[in-house]
Design a protein around this nucleic acid. Structure first.
Length: 381
DNA sequence: TCTGGGGTCCTAGGACCC
DNA sequence: TCTGGGGTCCTAGGACCC
């Protein structure tokens, strides 16, 4: 989907069409409705929190504002841009509709998050281009939104192709296109090559996919290890035999929050305790709603200096209720994480539950989950 | 004025068992 | 007292993606 969250918002606020609009994270007030039916929108420059850009319209991107950028920095680049709070329920609803309508045309679909799918068209007899056009038209009819489609012999190339003519594009790649259209692209266009790997390749003098493709595998395996080295070489040569996976069992659920201000390990202990309990309660709700329980419980801390620490414990029995999650999470926080004289501040706190089983399968175990111990304080010092 | 939230996969070391 | 492989599970961190 093209600029998905922002595009959904434009359906609600068509008067913003053509303007730089940014959908952002936390603590943003929704637009105020005026008596005459118009809306009063917040501007990026009025924002004072710690959020980041979730999605920006193409007009905002033209000003240098992209996903992941802090809203503060975005405000410097585009102070007059409209700022909207994210409405995940609306995006999830739209997401379901676009996926459902595609499923009517081709049922083998791999979910790649809220705004992206892979579709296996192998078994469909239709000619490629009309098929892609039909999918786009169906998505537009169901949602009022445009998407970009890449068609190729595998997922790796289809993904790159889908990005070549955004927004509202169709790109069909044939084998001959590899050298002509893929090799001139930067290595970061390959799904799986991020900032770190790209910087590493840069040091080796490899910038474009074509250069990577012509680099001997041995050179790559020496630098990146056997597995990654081979993968890089294959990817650059357009090779990918990964299947379209229609369903995966979830591996973990988690909840985390970044505080409005950094919390002191000792002085803000009561607040940290309350936040931890709240996260466990939300995680328990998620597990309950989705019907899972897990036995590996972990916490995640980001300190004010952005240093990240995780701790996890595997319990003998699975759990899914808030009390037991909290008990286990507190356990993770005990030990050498904090000292008596600790003056550090924490910016983010998270709780995770992994090693999942379906709750109906775990029902027998559930009866014997350990009772939480009382009077235990989290964030021991 | 820095840097969200929810995920997956990989690696590497250590414990433990046979 | 010194020495094997092989396998699994657990834990911490990191890269990457949407």
């Amino acid at each position: 989907m093209d600029a998905f969250f922002a595009s959904v918002e434009l359906l609600s606020y068509p008067e913003l069409r053509g303007l730089p609009v940014v959908v952002g994270g936390a603590g943003i007030a929704p637009p105020r409705s005026l008596p005459d039916g118009r809306h009063e929108f917040a501007r990026l420059k009025s924002y004072g929190g710690r959020g980041v850009v979730t999605t920006s319209t193409y007009e905002a991107r033209a000003l240098g504002v992209f996903s992941g950028m802090s809203l503060m920095r975005s405000a410097q680049l585009a102070p007059e841009a409209i700022l909207l709070p994210a409405r995940f329920d609306a995006y999830r609803d739209t997401s379901r509709r676009f996926k459902a309508v595609v499923a009517q045309i081709a049922s083998t679909i791999e979910d790649r998050g809220i705004d992206e799918i892979y579709i296996d068209l192998t078994e469909l007899a239709d000619a490629t281009l009309p098929l892609a056009q039909r999918i786009k038209a169906a998505v537009f009819a169901a949602t009022g939104l445009t998407c970009s489609v890449g068609v190729a012999a595998n997922k790796l190339l289809a993904k790159i192709g889908s990005d070549l003519q955004k927004p509202d594009g169709i790109t069909v790649l044939s084998p001959e296109d590899l050298a002509v259209r893929i090799w001139p692209l930067h290595v970061k266009k390959i799904n799986g090559i991020g900032a770190k790997t790209a910087a590493h390749l840069e040091k080796l003098g490899i910038h474009h996919i074509g250069e990577l493709a012509k680099t001997p595998v041995d050179t790559l395996t020496q630098d990146f290890g056997p597995r990654a080295g081979v993968w890089l070489h294959r990817a650059a040569n357009g090779m990918d035999d990964s299947p379209v996976v229609t369903w995966r069992a979830p591996k973990s659920f988690s909840r985390e929050t970044t505080f409005e201000r950094d919390l002191h390990v000792r002085r803000d202990r009561a607040e940290l305790s309350a936040q931890l309990a709240a996260l466990c309660a939300r995680l328990a709700e998620d597990l309950e709603r989705k019907g899972y329980a897990g036995c590996t419980i972990g916490v995640k801390l980001r300190f004010a200096d952005f240093h990240l620490v995780t701790r996890e414990i595997t319990w003998p029995e699975v759990m899914s209720d808030a009390e037991n999650l909290l008990h286990a999470a507190r356990r993770c926080l005990k030990g050498k994480l904090f000292t008596e004289a600790d003056q550090r501040r924490i910016r983010l706190l998270g709780v995770r539950c992994g090693n999942l089983t379906r709750r109906d399968e775990a029902a027998a175990q559930a009866a014997s989950t350990p009772r939480p111990r009382q009077n235990e304080l989290p964030f021991p010092t």
